[in-house]
Simulated assay, not measured.
Amino acid sequence: MLATLATTAVVTHAGPWAAGFGWAFLLIPIFWILVIGLIIFLVSRRRHAWMMHGGPEGYGPPWMRGASAESTLSERFAKGDIDETEYRARLEVLRSNRPNA
């Protein structure tokens, strides 16, 4: 009788691990597979959104976007490197040679 009570107390205290791994053995790998899958899903979704909605200069992350030719030209005009007639002439050439014009 004492042995039966001791065995019952050990099994009750130890939970599912005392009777072998059973179904709980599968929970740990399933949990980590789901966590890793969720992380991969969120990273790829964020990367896709970042690549598609990059900003006014173009698509992609900020370090891959180059300054557009028009913004470079306007910066040179603002610094005083070129005068207004040269700025307008070059801007007209840039706008006429756009690939999607």
Rank of each mutant, 00 (worst) to 15 (best):
P99R: 11
F77T: 01
G22Y: 10
L42A: 12
G66D: 05
D83I: 06
W63V: 09
V93G: 01
A89C: 04
V43K: 14
P16G: 01
S96A: 13
P99D: 03
N97I: 10
A101V: 07
E84W: 04
A78T: 09
L2G: 03
S96Q: 13
V35T: 11
E57H: 08
I39D: 07
L73T: 08
V43L: 14
I82L: 10
A18E: 00
S44H: 14
A3E: 13
A101C: 03
A9D: 03
P29E: 01
P61M: 13
S74C: 03
R46F: 15
W17H: 10
V93T: 04
G37S: 07
T72M: 09
W17R: 01
L38A: 12
D81S: 06
R45D: 00
G55E: 04
L91Y: 08
A101L: 11
V11F: 05
S96I: 10
L38Q: 09
L94K: 07
I30L: 12
P99E: 04
W17G: 05
E57Y: 07
G22R: 14
P62M: 06
S71E: 06
S74H: 07
L26Q: 13
N97C: 09
L34H: 02
L5R: 09
A18D: 00
P29F: 03
I30E: 02
P29D: 00
I36Q: 03
A3Q: 14
E70I: 15
H48M: 11
W63D: 15
F31R: 01
I30F: 11
P56M: 10
P16V: 02
L91W: 10
E92D: 15
T72S: 09
R98M: 05
G58A: 02
V11Q: 06
W50N: 14
M51S: 05
T7R: 02
S71Y: 05
R47G: 03
R90F: 10
I39M: 08
I36D: 00
A9V: 05
W23M: 11
I82G: 07
Y59H: 05
A9F: 06
V11R: 02
Y59C: 01
F77P: 00
R95V: 11
L91I: 14
A67R: 15
G58Q: 01
G22M: 09
S71K: 07
A18C: 02
G22L: 12
A19Q: 10
I82A: 09
P16Q: 00
W50Q: 13
F31C: 13
R45G: 01
L38V: 11
R65N: 04
R65I: 07
H13L: 14
R45M: 07
R47C: 08
M51W: 12
I82H: 12
G37H: 06
E92H: 09
